[in-house]
Amino acid sequence: MRYGTRLAVGPVQFRIGSDWAAPIAALNRLYAGYPRDEDRPADATVRLFAARPWRRRLRPSVQIGGDFTVPDALPLPLSMGLLAAEMGMNLQVALGWRRHLLLHASAVAKDGRAAILSGESGSGKSTLAALLGEDGWRLMGDEFTLVDPASGDALAFPRAVSLKNAAIAEVAARVDPARLGPLLAGTPKGDIRHLIPRADAVAAMHDPVRPALLLFPRFGGEAAVEPMGEGEAFVRLTEASTNYVALGETGFAALLRLVRETPAFAVSYPDSATGMALVDRLWAEAAR
């Protein structure tokens, strides 16, 4: 393809090709601080392309493809090329990665131990992880957390955090503006702005961490914490995993170990400050 870049997020090496220069330039800016190995063969290929040749220039719209594609995926305008790249990268990992149990969850770490936050989009797991990452925690990832079946450890996938709507202002108020990507207004997912994780979180992205807390956050409603049984946590995490079925017994053993060894809680919270305080409280109790 005419333009391209290669970058590594956690254990995944991506090759990204594009019919246009702009999405690649935007990616290179967001991922400038990530380690690069130009000679490492790629695990996953993403393609951003024009559905018809004339769509390269005339009302250009970006089709998302790669090793794995979603049939009938709608193209995005070129102004949202960065979002298209991010969606393409997520898609390859969600559908193609087999080395680890993949959980659709954010994660943060402290003192070599991890809190894993699993929830649907809208649960606030991304925002909570991003805010904790600015508040003494190491951000491991806002979207995917990988569990190594051999060791039971959690591995980071610290892509650029995808802040949405109200979370943009909330986080922007706390960070150096140089760590924010361009504002992508009016995308199919609302307003989006990317946050570059702190340099120490990127530098530590290959360090495995022992899971210490499993949290199932829910944004809205009164502050509440409810211990969750192992059975329910297991069922919820099978639903939050894109490759549980494909991993067979390896995935079964990894998930069983995770829920048996890690205390789990459902957490409701009305605002981010309360959510962060609840995480800190549960963390202090789990550490004891």
Binding site: G229, G231, E232, F234, V235, T238, V245, G248, E249
Partner: peptide, 22 residues
């Protein structure tokens, strides 16, 4: 089969089908 009690539930992993039955 790999039969694992988990709280009130029992997980049965069937190695032939690779399915998990709860």
């Amino acid at each position: 089969l790999c039969v694992e009690p988990l709280g009130d539930l029992t997980l049965i992993f069937d190695r032939r089908s690779t399915q998990t039955h709860i």
